[in-house]
Design a protein around this nucleic acid. Structure first.
Lengths: 233, 233
DNA sequence: ACTAAGTTGCACAGGGCTGTGCAACTTAGC
DNA sequence: GCTAAGTTGCACAGCCCTGTGCAACTTAGT
């Protein structure tokens, strides 16, 4: 008995439409987190009614967006680590750049609504990573020690979001965008623009696109310690 | 005939209530620009119906908030100028800090809605001021030249907003808040945190609260040029 | 080609918001 | 203390949104 009870397999175009809806939601909700489902359906080229065939409710769609964004971001952060907190911070920035769209949607949805808590959960790893880098950087005298690391970490996050916005707005190249996210993050952390760019240029891991998808030989945690004292210490 | 035709003067508590509404709107709309008038009225301790006695419509109330914010911010910017773009930028930051509440409300309202244009108008002087400082700073080699000044100016603005948020959240002292706004602005512009703080400490105008409300002898444009080469040039 | 999966358009109920009218009430000004 | 200014609560219409039901239609899978 090949087909036990299921009289037919689900149609493939339905799956495509589901994807289209999610994609449309990402676009629309990034612009306005409180946009109507009508707007989402229109963006997806479907009717509002059809949308309810894929998602039981607005919150359902939101949840889908959240888990997708969270998953991708977490994945992008997986192999990000460096003993040098400056490099680590830059790497986090680069990872975020590789998932700009997702990050932007999440950040936008985080502004208000009952999703706040769920979103906060999704971004916990990022926050922890940034916070840890901030703490380390301050301890080593590279980052500004005049404000609490918690505040510093938040300011770095906000700056990064602003850069992502600006990058999208001015349609930056992939390389320029990644560079900018990294350098502005380091700037807010306390480095001069010269030091930030010098560090980025002097560090192989920060050069190319996210090292993933490259040869598996260079995978795994990095942990160099080039230039131990920093450009100006 | 002292009272020509007006049978009675307007009551004073009505004016107080009007103020209360505006203040409440500032509080509520800063948290959520799309909050209901019910929420505003509640915050003001009035009924929703009474609110309509003072403002014909929601947009009316919004407009009032806008002109007030715009006016105060513009006023705070009036005597802000310095030949040194770094000092100038810091002064703008300090001026914004002196009007945190107003700036926050405007920035929040700017996010969406048909007010965008009006708000943009209200913030034109600030933007122009920051942009000019950015251009100057880049020209003199103090600020990062690797991105267009327009982008740099926007990033500085966004960072400043983030600092204002953080300052309000952590309940920073007046002095610490002003210092932070100035230093982070300079950081994003490209200075190291040491240079930023050194500049702030070494520059008299950046020390005390906004020089206004002090003796009129020290009023008017400042235009010094202390430390022409900058801390590290 | 047959059929069920998927889509569409419409209609509808329910909820929240705005803006208005009105009667009753409280309060400031003279 | 008289009186109008101002407030309150209620009721109402209108708008936009969500979520659902249903009949008719189009399309993918076999």
């Amino acid at each position: 008995m090949p087909t036990t009870l299921t009289p037919r397999a689900p149609r493939k175009d339905a799956l495509e439409n589901r994807e289209a809806i999610v994609a449309a939601a990402a676009i629309v909700f990034r612009r306005d987190p409180e946009a109507s489902l009508d707007a989402v359906a229109a963006e997806a080229g479907l009717s509002r009614r059809a949308l309810y065939g894929h998602f039981a409710s607005r919150d359902d769609l939101m949840a889908e967006l959240l888990v997708r964004g969270g998953t991708r971001i977490s994945a992008a952060l997986l192999d990000v680590h460096d003993d040098d907190p400056r490099v680590h911070l830059a790497l986090v920035g680069a990872a975020m750049w590789s998932e700009v769209q997702q990050v932007r949607v999440l950040a936008q949805l985080a502004i208000h609504g009952p999703l706040e808590k769920t979103i906060a959960d999704a971004l916990v790893p990022v926050r922890a990573s940034v916070r840890e880098a901030a703490r380390n950087g301050v301890a080593r005298g590279w980052f500004r020690p005049d404000i609490p690391v918690e505040s510093l970490a938040r300011l770095i996050e906000d700056a990064a979001i602003a850069v992502l916005d600006e990058a999208v707005r001015t349609d930056l190249s992939d390389d320029a965008g990644r560079r900018l996210v990294m350098s502005v993050g380091l700037s807010v952390a306390g480095l001069s623009w010269q030091d930030a760019l010098a560090l980025i240029d002097a560090t192989p891991e920060l050069a190319g696109p996210t090292s993933r998808t490259a040869d598996p030989a260079s995978a795994g945690p990095t942990s160099r310690t080039a230039d131990p004292e920093g450009p100006r210490a």
